[in-house]
Design a protein around this nucleic acid. Structure first.
Lengths: 346, 346
DNA sequence: CTGTTAGCGCGTTCAC
DNA sequence: GTGAACGCGCTAACAG
């Protein structure tokens, strides 16, 4: 503890509202009012109270307050990983939108597993959040049940779940990847490869792969060469290894699409290292439009996703539901934008 | 809200422990015991209780519980930004160490300003965390006072504050940057440049710059050419612009050290784009050893910092203090490791 | 504008 | 092994 921690002398206890009240010569209720913006308290007493607050170093105990007011001021958000800049952007969108609403974020991450998500959802619900934001539409049955009986608004993001729990803010990963294939096919590429992870843990990754396969078929192109490499989310390094494997097995591949910009970046850098020219010898495209995509050399063709906007809009919907302004539109699905960004690599 | 939200019919309310108790034919106290691992309850009643919990979809209300037990189970952590992979790694270290301790993380970010930090600290203290982890040693006076009167363990990280509040887990950014200078001087570089942000908002950045200047002086090298560009944290793009500016003003610069890998990466890529050879025409080094540093082309010489370990050790110290196992060692300062990683760019 | 009373949902404590 | 009374720190509701 900071400074001397001399036992539990009363002086050393964290002060309560009652301590402040006594010092200011008022009741606890008046202190409570003075500490809210809307509280009707005379300026004189408010001043005395604030002085007492300062002298004692008093900080409101919101746990106690929310028990009484039946509003915790918490909003929960669950993302796959904090170490992925796309999801970090979403988290920032949520936080920014929450600013000045008095709502505080409880953030957790699942490591891309539904089991961790379930645990996390329970841990969060124990804090009685007033709303919750999830990533994706794949949850355990138990998680779904808990969410349904929690009686709070739920927003699923980053995908378009076939069976939404409540509200949705996202886009079709399948369509977005298909759009990338079509765009590149129009540029003349015909022999497509796809680099992604080995399991379906990352549901968005699976959807992108499905979109790839579907688009290739629809365009009547030669069957796509699918390379699975590493447990999702696959890293920069794995992207490099995967592209090498792809070129060994299918040396005539014209363009490799990667499940995310990280693997695409790894693929690009590994090719440069080996003297393989991009896009002449092989073109490469990513997904997500991470910051590096615009600045690496060659710059990376990719699909830009409105990560920040997903967070912002999800939080906005949640706030509307919480404040009771949702006018029965709560089941509305908000589609977020995506677009192919054509740069040098493909 | 999920499913039908038919007014406030009692059926639709979130069940309390009493509801579970009634359904299982026991008292609320017995339910409380059954839901802890250490509770002494007969297997028969526990089973009945767990069945009731399941049927009702009951989830413990921890806010209420912690009010009574006087333990919130919260730990607060404040980092400059969630969108910086170094700090995201620290956050992950904290979370990993917290797993299975029953402690839950309250995460906030300051955008590198002491004012936001102060607000955040107050917001967190309102939740009565059992401990708090901060980044750096620069805080407002009010923040220091609040922390001191909160009566909880505090860990400052990522730096070595001259006046620590309580515990410290970090390293000297000054020394780390000086080490980089000495290492590169030994390789023969003599004309050093430094690229960093324009303000001292990023205290670690300022310390690195100070370490740069000091080391140059100590080695008796020609004065370092300091380029300030952009409000910290400076981006990939700004790193590219800054190196261009540096080469215009001081074309004979042999090596440019950057405040972080992001700006260094931007500098490297911009040079490649302009056909400037690295390291022959100019060498570049970064700081932080981000994932891209190892995989970009050319690979980036940088200073590796144990970001994850900082988080892990900070959380470990906090847990020890909270569980009361700190044996009076609480003022101990834990130094985390750093090392220069020599790669291709310098 | 201010005070009083009651109770939020749980865990502590003590009794049985 | 189980229950009852009580209170954690605060705010809703009502009174004055």
């Amino acid at each position: 503890m900071p400074k001397e921690l001399n036992a539990k002398s009363p002086e050393n206890q964290v002060p309560t509202m009652l301590d402040v009240a006594r010092r200011a010569g008022v009741s606890a209720m008046t202190v409570s009012r003075a500490l809210k913006k809307d509280g009707r308290v005379s300026d004189a007493t408010r001043e005395r109270i604030l002085a007492a607050v300062n002298e004692l170093g008093y900080v409101l105990d919101q746990s106690a307050g929310s028990l009484s007011s039946r509003k915790t001021g918490f909003v929960a958000a669950i993302i796959p990983s904090i170490n992925n800049s796309n999801f970090a952007d979403t988290a920032r969108g949520i936080t920014d939108e929450l600013e000045n609403t008095g709502l505080q974020l409880l953030l957790g991450y699942t490591d891309y597993t539904a089991e961790k998500e379930e645990k996390l959802i329970e841990a969060m619900l124990r804090r009685r959040p007033e709303g919750i934001i999830l990533t994706g539409g794949t949850h355990t049955d138990h998680a779904r049940r808990m969410l349904e009986s929690a009686g709070i608004p739920v927003v699923e993001t980053w995908e378009l779940p076939p069976k939404p729990i409540d509200q949705v803010v996202g886009f079709s990963n399948e369509e977005a990847m298909a759009l990338l294939v079509r765009t590149l096919a129009r540029k003349g590429y015909r022999k497509f490869g796809y680099i992604g992870g080995t399991t379906s843990r990352d549901t968005r990754g699976s959807q992108r792969r499905a979109g790839f396969v579907k688009a290739i078929e629809e365009l009547g192109l030669p069957p796509g060469r699918l390379v699975s490499f590493g447990v999702p989310p696959i890293s920069i390094e794995q992207g490099g290894q995967a592209v090498v494997g792809m070129l060994e097995r299918w040396p005539d591949t014209e363009v490799a699409l990667c499940v995310s910009d990280l693997s695409a970046f790894g693929a690009v850098m590994e090719c440069k290292r080996r003297g393989i020219r991009i896009p002449q010898d092989i073109a490469i495209a990513g997904f997500g439009d991470f910051e590096i995509a615009a600045y690496c050399h060659p710059t990376l063709t990719t699909v830009n996703v409105d990560c920040y906007g997903i967070g912002k809009q999800a939080a906005r919907k949640l706030i509307q539901s919480i404040k009771g302004e949702d006018n029965g539109l709560s089941q509305e699905i908000i589609l977020t934008s995506y677009r192919v960004v054509e740069r040098e690599s493909a």
